[in-house]
């Protein structure tokens, strides 16, 4: 399948998800279940995307593991997103030099 079609579908869906509620919606969601579902879904999605994929993310399990540990520790102490992200990468890179 042409990559243009994939990209168009991807972009179209993503845009409509943003545009429709922002343009049309003026009231608040009342259903507690739906509200809770929408509240938790980003965390669940990011978690499912990260675990276990992060353990293969550098192409080497050992350096991935080191990077993951660094990211978890720094995230636990609430460091800024970009610091956590780059430190994980730096740790994986530095550790990779020694193995």
């Amino acid at each position: 399948m042409s990559i243009i079609i994939y990209i168009a579908v991807m972009a179209g869906v993503t845009y409509l998800i943003r545009m429709i509620p922002f343009t049309l919606f003026r009231k608040k969601i009342k259903s507690p279940f739906f509200r809770g579902f929408l509240y938790y879904i980003p965390y669940a999605v990011l978690s499912a995307m990260t675990i276990p994929a992060i353990f293969y993310s550098t192409g080497n399990t050992a350096t991935s593991l080191i990077g993951t540990v660094v990211a978890v520790v720094l995230a636990y102490f609430k460091l800024p997103l970009i610091v956590v992200a780059l430190a994980a990468s730096a740790a994986a890179f530095i550790f990779g030099l020694f193995i």
Partner: peptide
């Protein structure tokens, strides 16, 4: 993935 962990 590091950024995702920092968000969650």
């Amino acid at each position: 993935y590091g950024m995702f962990l920092a968000i969650i």
